[in-house]
Simulated assay, not measured.
Amino acid sequence: MQDIVFATNNSHKLEEIRRIFGGKFRILSLKEIGCEDDIPETADTLEGNAIMKARYVKQHYGYDCFADDTGLMVNALDGAPGVYSARYAGPGHDSVANMSLLLKNLQGITDRRARFVTVIALILNGVETTFEGQVEGRILTEPHGADGFGYDPVFQPDESDMSFAEMSADAKNAISHRGRATEKLMAYLQTVD
């Protein structure tokens, strides 16, 4: 089984990706390769941040790897929080504070259309490739469900009458932005040696 590094310290993302991959590859975390660095994410696009993280791991640790960046784009907020989704309410990556600020900023707004976008950057055998997944939906007026992470309790995809946080992991992964980007990544990996 081939090893590949997923450049994340987010245990929720790691678990989700490992579940989607289903044992086809052995996914190593940053911690498992001895990387405890705070990898910079200073680009102004999701693609830029994903590439930055993948290059950092390749340059500093020598591993072929992939990295992702995800953003929630809300129509009524001109695409915010977007690339700043994880830090929307401040630098602490506090999901509850991020959701609270989002709901506050949408008070009284009827257009609650939004989309989640994930971009995965892969560095493999010296070649950089990116994969994108999107899911359209809307922001609920209050959190629903106890599973998932990030904005999952307030995001309801068009394909369901439940929030991501109300779905089973498998149901969410089947339609999620990260699931769709990861499917493209896996299809690509199966075409290379």
Rank of each mutant, 00 (worst) to 15 (best):
I4G: 00
A7G: 05
T8I: 11
L14F: 10
E15N: 15
I17C: 02
R18V: 09
R19Q: 12
I20S: 00
G22T: 03
G23W: 10
R26P: 01
I27Y: 02
I27S: 03
L28W: 07
S29H: 00
S29P: 00
S29Q: 04
K31A: 12
I33W: 02
D38Q: 08
D38I: 03
P40H: 07
E41L: 05
T42Q: 09
D44E: 14
T45F: 07
A50L: 10
A50M: 09
R55K: 14
R55H: 10
R55P: 10
V57E: 09
K58T: 13
Y61M: 08
G62T: 01
F66V: 04
A67H: 03
T70I: 10
M73R: 08
N75A: 11
N75W: 12
A80D: 06
A89D: 06
A89H: 03
G90E: 14
H93K: 15
H93N: 12
H93T: 11
D94P: 04
S95D: 15
S95I: 12
V96E: 14
L103Q: 00
Q107T: 08
G108Q: 04
G108M: 03
R113M: 12
R115V: 12
V117N: 02
T118W: 08
I123E: 04
T130R: 00
T130D: 01
G137A: 01
G137E: 08
P143M: 13
G145Q: 10
G148M: 11
G150P: 02
Y151R: 03
P153K: 07
D158S: 13
E159Q: 14
D161W: 13
A165I: 01
M167V: 05
S168R: 09
A171H: 04
N173V: 11
A174R: 09
I175N: 05
H177M: 02
R180M: 10
R180A: 14
M186R: 06
A187F: 11
A187Q: 15
